[in-house]
Amino acid sequence: MALLQKAFQQLSRIPFRGNLSNNRTLFTQTSPTLFKVTDVVSAEPLKKRRRTDPQLVAARDAKRKRRIEKAIKKLMKTGRKLKPVDEIEGDRKLQKEKKERNRELPTLSNEQLDNRAILMKEWNLYKGVQYKKECASINTMLECQAKALSELKLESEELYMAAIQVDYQLLPYEVNGPVRTPPIKGYDPPDGEYTDTTKTYEVEIGDVTTVLKQFIRK
């Protein structure tokens, strides 16, 4: 637009001569015509401000506030609603790479498969026997305790009552282990890598009053 304007202005400076051969001139003036174009304003006129009713605004705010409060209350009551497991898709990237991530394994011979099946059965038997033994020993332990309690009851009702009280000191009971190798005595574990996320605030002591003032103004 600006270019066009300039072109017009330049054009208007050149005196127009007309066709010489006809000896006729359209304009008798020798001075340039100097017609002008107004400046281009690259903006549109301002919109008129609409007047809003303050009561209406307050009502709208109150409504929004109420809606948020309701949502908070609902969240407090039911907790965060979790996505159902069926709808979880899993990692898209891994799904794409599934074939690439397959292992190249040698095919097992029939003998190997048989051996595995036999070992599984042996293991089942072994664990079954172990479980039965464990149950039996637990039963004998319970029997022993019942017998001890009845023997105690024969001697003294008071002691018996003391013995059948619940031991509230016992729970929670925590035992560690067993582990692969025993703990090293006096071992000082080295620090791992960590990132310090503690926020630090740098305020000069002389500035405290101004900082506080700023804080209050906020």
Binding site: M141, Q145, K147, A148, L149, I164, D167, L170, Y173
Partner: peptide
């Protein structure tokens, strides 16, 4: 040591 419960676990006469 930590005692396990108030009840005796066995008796010997």
């Amino acid at each position: 040591a930590r005692f396990i419960g108030n009840a005796p676990s066995g008796v010997y006469k």
